[in-house]
């Protein structure tokens, strides 16, 4: 076994991963909070008013990063599910299932804020256009994964089944988007592009990107927090978990 695989197995072992996650997690939460607050100040105070949409456009400073996070979390989950199913790595199973509720939360925020933005802009809370519908289907996919994971008693089997469902969903998302696109859409086109010039002013773009960064960091913090719990559940009978369980009683007593 060479040094890299040895390192990999060492950090992948539940006790090490638990400790490591515990050390990184507060930094993620803290950094996410600080970056998020700076981004909010930029978005709510510094960014100028949009000449077309007035101040209502300020919703996109949370709406768009959350929409990105909803997708990012799904791919993070699916990638981990793939690793878990192919190489049977316990840590990946736990990571994949830890990402599901966080992604669902971000998708939910996207739907609600989109609705709140749509009311003054389009005059309706909800329209059946491609992006809204795909986002709703994405939420259903998340709920399906979470539901399946919760419904199976055996933790490892639950993670594998739910991971498999997540992988099916990865194939499904583009198909759903394509099929729903079939109806004509009244959603405005994409205004931020990674490649080429974006159609949005610099004073508006930096809070948006900063908020995206903040939500990413926050996401990892939350995933790590859930991973720690997942590892405790998975290794319930092991000595290291026992030490943690009993150690906490002593600390509180």
């Amino acid at each position: 076994m060479n040094a890299l695989t040895l390192w990999f197995h060492k950090t992948g072992s539940p006790p090490t991963a638990y400790r490591l996650a515990g050390r990184i997690m507060p930094w993620c939460y803290g950094l996410g909070l600080v970056l998020g607050l700076v981004a909010l100040y930029g978005g709510l105070v510094l960014a100028p008013r949009d000449y077309q949409q007035g101040d209502a456009y300020r919703i996109i400073f949370i709406h768009v990063p959350c929409a990105w996070m909803g997708l990012f979390a799904y791919f993070f989950m699916a990638a981990n599910a793939f690793i878990a199913l192919v190489w049977r790595i316990k840590l990946s199973e736990v990571l994949a299932m830890a990402a599901a509720p966080v992604g669902a939360a971000f998708t939910f925020i996207t739907l609600v804020t989109g609705s709140l933005w749509g009311k003054p802009m389009w005059g309706t809370w909800w329209t059946w256009d491609a992006r809204l519908t795909s986002e709703l289907v994405l939420l259903f996919l998340y709920l399906g994964v979470i539901g399946l994971h919760a419904a199976i008693e055996d933790r490892r089997q639950a993670a594998r089944a739910a991971g498999f469902l997540a992988l099916i969903g990865v194939v499904n998302i583009p198909i759903v988007h394509f099929s729903v696109n079939w109806w004509n859409t009244l959603h405005q086109g994409s205004t931020v592009r990674l490649m080429g010039p974006s159609k949005i002013d610099g004073s508006m773009i930096w809070p948006l990107l900063l908020m995206a960064l903040a939500t990413h960091v926050w996401f990892f913090g939350s995933v790590l927090a859930r991973t720690r719990i997942g590892l405790l559940e998975l290794d319930g009978g092991k000595d290291w978990v026992r030490a943690i369980a009993l150690g906490e009683t002593e600390a509180r007593a």
């Binding site: 259903f140 996919l141 709920l143 539901g147 399946l148 469902l165 099929s179 729903v180």
Partner: peptide, 19 residues
């Protein structure tokens, strides 16, 4: 499994229904 099955199946059925 009734409700859960419906939840799992629904996203897969959406494109079929649309087309």
């Amino acid at each position: 499994s009734g409700m859960l099955l419906a939840l799992l199946v629904l996203p897969l059925y959406v494109p079929v229904l649309i087309f």
